[in-house]
C-alpha cells in the first residue's frame, strides 16, 4: 500500500506545477455553467417553481455538481494515456514491476486530479452560492455523505475508463467507445437527473453507470436523504467491485495476447 500512496503523492506534487492551467480551464467550465444557468432560467420562465420535483436553483446546483465530477475527472486524457500506453508497448514495462497496473492507474490519476477537483469545488461553491444565494447542504453529515459518494463516483469512473482504454489491446483505437460512454454519462446523468425521463426508462437507467458516477452524488447534494444515501452507496460498492474485476481481467487477457504476439 505504501508504494501506491507514494505514487499518489508524487503525481500530486507534479500536478501542482500546472495549477495555473486549472484556473484557465475553469473559465471553460464556468462559461459552460453560465450557459446551463441561462438554459434553465429560460426553461423555468413560465413554469411553476418545480419541474419534476426540482427547483431552478436545484437544477443549476445539480449540473454544477455533475460537471465538476466530469471536468475534474479528465476522462478523455486518462483514456488516451492508457491507449497510448498499450499502443506504444510501454505497458509491458509494468509487467516486471511489483505492482498492479490497475491500482497504479487509480492512484496516479487520483493524485493528478486532486488539486483540480478541489479548486473546481471551492470555486464553484463560492461562485454559485453568491449567484444563486441558496446553499443546498444543511449540515456536516450531509456534506460527508456527498463527499463519500463523490469520491466513490470518481474511483468507479477511473476504473470504467481504464477498462475502456485497455480494450485497445484488442482493437486499434478504443477512443470511439469512450466517446459513446462519455455521451451516455452526459445525457443520462450529467445534464438531467433521472427523474426527467419517462417512468419506465427511470427503472432501466438505474443500471446505467451514470446513476452512480454522476446522478448519485449530485442528487444527494441538492436533496439529501438517508434512504437515497444508503441506496447509492450500495449500488456504488457493487459497481466498484465489478469494475475492479473487469479492469483487471481485461488487463490480464490483454497482456497475455501481447505475449503471444511477442509485443
Amino acid at each position: 500500500m505504501r508504494k501506491y500512496i507514494y505514487i499518489f503523492k508524487s503525481e500530486f506534487m507534479s500536478s501542482l506545477q500546472y495549477v495555473s492551467n486549472v484556473f484557465i480551464n475553469y473559465i471553460g467550465y464556468f462559461i459552460m455553467m453560465f450557459m446551463f444557468w441561462n438554459l434553465w432560467k429560460y426553461m423555468y420562465q413560465d413554469e411553476a417553481n418545480l419541474i419534476n420535483g426540482y427547483t431552478m436553483n436545484q437544477m443549476v446546483w445539480y449540473v454544477a455538481m455533475t460537471e465538476i465530477l466530469w471536468y475534474g475527472l479528465g476522462g478523455r486524457k486518462l483514456c488516451r494515456r492508457i491507449t497510448d500506453d498499450v499502443r506504444s508497448g510501454n505497458i509491458t514495462y509494468n509487467l516486471n514491476k511489483p505492482y498492479s497496473y490497475v491500482s497504479y492507474i487509480i492512484f496516479s490519476h487520483l493524485g493528478e486530479i486532486l488539486i483540480r477537483t478541489i479548486l473546481y469545488t471551492v470555486l464553484s461553491l463560492t461562485l454559485f452560492n453568491s449567484i444563486l444565494g441558496e446553499f443546498p447542504i444543511g449540515n456536516i453529515y450531509e456534506a460527508l455523505g456527498v463527499f463519500i459518494t463523490a469520491f466513490l463516483a470518481i474511483v468507479i469512473s477511473i476504473l470504467i475508463i481504464t477498462s475502456i482504454g485497455l480494450i485497445s489491446f484488442f482493437m486499434e483505437d478504443a477512443s470511439p467507445i469512450y466517446w459513446i460512454y462519455s455521451k451516455i454519462i452526459l445525457v443520462l446523468g450529467t445534464l438531467f437527473p433521472v427523474e426527467f425521463f419517462p417512468m419506465f426508462l427511470q427503472k432501466v437507467f438505474k443500471f446505467v453507470p451514470a446513476y452512480v458516477v454522476s446522478y448519485g452524488p449530485a442528487k444527494l447534494f441538492v436533496d439529501f436523504s438517508i434512504d437515497k444515501f444508503v441506496e447509492i452507496i450500495i449500488v456504488q460498492l457493487c459497481y466498484l467491485l465489478v469494475s475492479l474485476l473487469v479492469a483487471n481481467l481485461i488487463y490480464k487477457k490483454g497482456v497475455k495476447k501481447l505475449n503471444v504476439n511477442g509485443g
Binding site: I51, V187, F197
Partner: peptide, 27 residues
C-alpha cells in the same frame, strides 16, 4: 478504424436528440 471512427462519431452526435426530446417535453 477509419470507418469505425466515422460511424461512432455520427452515433456520438446523435445522443443530443435525447437531450432535446426532454427539453421539448418540458416546454
Amino acid at each position: 478504424t477509419f470507418v469505425m471512427s466515422i460511424v461512432f462519431m455520427i452515433l456520438n452526435n446523435a445522443t443530443f436528440i435525447i437531450q432535446y426530446l426532454i427539453l421539448f417535453s418540458l416546454k
